Computed example of a mutant assay.
Amino acid sequence: MDKFIAYWEHIPSAHRILILMGGMIFFWLLEGYYPLFRFSFKRYRHAGVNLIFLLTTLILNLIFGLVTIRVCDAVTVHKFGLVHWLHLPVWAVIVVCLLIGDLFGQYIPHRLMHRVKWMWKFHMIHHSDTKVDVTTGTRHHPGEWLFREFFMIIGIVVMGMPIWMYFLYRSCAALFTHFNHANIIVPEWIDRPISWIFVSPNMHKVHHHYMRPYTDTNYSNIFSLWDRLFGTFAYTDPSTLRYGLDVLDDETDEKLMYQLKLPFNKNIKTDY
Rank of each mutant, 00 (worst) to 15 (best):
P35D: 10
I190S: 09
F53A: 06
L51R: 02
K269F: 06
I154F: 07
K261A: 06
L54S: 06
D227Y: 05
L58D: 03
K255L: 10
M165W: 01
P193M: 06
S40L: 15
K121I: 08
F53K: 04
P109H: 13
R43M: 13
P263K: 00
I69R: 09
V77H: 11
I25K: 08
M152A: 03
P162N: 04
N50A: 04
M152E: 03
V134L: 01
I190G: 11
L262N: 05
G22N: 06
M119A: 15
H209Q: 09
V96M: 15
R111D: 13
L36N: 07
T76W: 12
N218M: 00
L51I: 12
R16A: 06
W189V: 08
G155T: 03
M1S: 04
P263E: 07
T76I: 10
D253Y: 13
T76H: 11
H46N: 12
I185Q: 14
Y169K: 00
F37I: 15
F198W: 10
R192Q: 13
I25G: 03
T217Q: 11
D2N: 12
H141R: 00
W189Q: 08
L36C: 12
K117H: 08
W145R: 04
L60Y: 13
I268L: 06
D250R: 09
L86C: 15
K261C: 13
G244K: 02
F150Q: 00
